[in-house]
Amino acid sequence: MQIHKIKKIISDGLGKNNPVFYQILGICSTLAVTNVLKNTLVMCLGLIFTTALSSMTVSFMRKHIPTRVRMMVEVLIIAVYVIIVDLVLKAYAPDISRQLGPYVGLIITNCIVMGRAEGFALSNPPGESFLDGIFSGVGYSYVLLTIAFIRELMGSGKIWGIQVLGDWWTNWSIMVMAPGGFFMLAIFIWIVKGYIIKDKEVKKA
């Protein structure tokens, strides 16, 4: 693997080509747990694990998968890794597993995992696909972790379950409820898109 290829994979995953900014893909399964930072981190780790390993597996098998049924094969491969994540969580972190509820299983239908398998792993060798999976997972995770950080801080005055804001702080209960997630993501997209638009205007001028 050449260095410039690896660099491109990393910058694509973390930078402006990040799927969350561009098409708002794959927020379904994770946005719901962003009211608590710890749960978000666990979900994100699960997602990175699934994306990386499923991309690698799809890439190993890419020459043997018939094109007609490739979506189904990809979904099955992803589902296998999600089951592993679910069982590990149930065994080692039963509390978190209970709080996450069905959302771990919903990683299967997360568009990012599928998108990487379909868009990258089918046409690239395993090593690169693995890296691509990791970095698109990380690129996705930092967006959600930022959202979770702000929601937990403003919604309950806590970071990682520890009270950091004193008595003077009135909890914005709206932040831990559903609308808070929608508003936070919208603001995040607004900021990032604003920068992208500015960048384009500067280049034109």
Partner: peptide, 18 residues
């Protein structure tokens, strides 16, 4: 606002609906 067009404003509306 330009940055909000498309997905951004849709999410805000969804938030208000929620």
């Amino acid at each position: 606002p330009k940055g909000l067009e498309g997905a951004g404003i849709t999410l805000i509306i969804a938030g208000i609906m929620a």
